[in-house]
């Protein structure tokens, strides 16, 4: 797949938050309405970005620079206050592993629930089931077991398997691979490579420049809610380290 897959034009995102110190109705009522309750906070501003189909695009930036909000914007969880977001395809967000797993339900029931939450059909074909079995490395017994008895690693495996079960057009990954053991991480990278080879567009957020340089073709650096640098991973890496004040 080629051409522009994701296009952001002059995107701004504002959040509505309570004013400082107004976390409860109590504090509002005791101020007798003299203070305003909510205020707008600018999270992202002036973002112009174009990501091509089949590309693996990395995003680096300091904590609080807006990386996660940008991913949520791409995932459709956050709507732009101003500007346009255009995505030509089905997006599979992986912003946190094991989210939406219901501890009281079995592995298979969770697979169904999570995939429904992601907008898939109610019943999955045998293909999806066998993929989940093989990727997660969980036995049929494990998958029939309640998820509350799973270890953290098992949950992460199941979560990753659910998110990547069908080939999405765009896969969004937010530093989720930090969990799990090395074998699991390698398995995840293999799957990412595989999806990439099939033409899936990947947007990958990480603090670790090494990972971005390993799997991404291009990258962007974010600072204070906007994209400050777009280029190949080396250029962006140099820029990022410049911001941090660490020589590369």
């Amino acid at each position: 797949m080629s051409g522009t897959m994701i296009e952001l034009r002059n995107v701004h995102v504002d959040y509505l938050v309570q004013r400082h110190g107004m976390r409860s109705i109590k504090s509002y009522l005791t101020s007798f309405g003299s203070k305003r309750l909510l205020e707008r906070k600018h999270i992202l501003h002036d973002i112009d970005l174009r990501i091509n189909g089949g590309e693996c695009f990395g995003i680096v930036g300091r904590n609080g620079s807006g990386k996660s909000t940008l991913l949520r914007l791409l995932a459709g969880i956050v709507e732009p206050t101003k500007g346009h977001v255009r995505i030509n395809g089905h997006v599979a967000p992986m912003l946190a592993l094991g989210v939406g797993l219901e501890p009281e339900m079995s592995g298979w029931e969770n697979v169904r629930l999570c995939r429904m939450l992601m907008g898939h059909q109610r019943f999955d074909g045998e293909g999806v089931r066998s993929y989940i079995r093989s990727f997660s490395g969980l036995s049929e017994d494990d998958l029939e077991m309640q998820v509350k008895r799973y270890s953290t690693g098992m949950m992460a495996r199941l979560g990753f398997a659910i998110a990547t079960a069908t080939d999405p057009d765009v896969l969004l990954i937010d530093e989720v691979l930090a969990v799990g053991d090395v074998a699991f991480q390698q398995q995840c990278y293999r799957r990412i490579e595989e999806l990439k080879a099939r033409g899936c567009t990947i947007v990958f957020v990480s603090h670790m420049l090494g990972e971005i340089q390993r799997i991404c073709d291009r990258a962007a650096c974010m600072e204070n809610g906007t994209v400050v640098k777009v280029g190949n991973t080396h250029e962006v890496g140099v820029h990022y380290h410049g911001l941090l004040g660490i020589p590369l």
């Binding site: 949520r72 995932a75 969880i77 997006v91 967000p93 946190a96 989210v99 939406g100």
Partner: peptide, 9 residues
């Protein structure tokens, strides 16, 4: 909130 924060539901 965990679901709402990470999936477009």
């Amino acid at each position: 909130s965990a679901v709402l924060r990470s999936l477009a539901v």
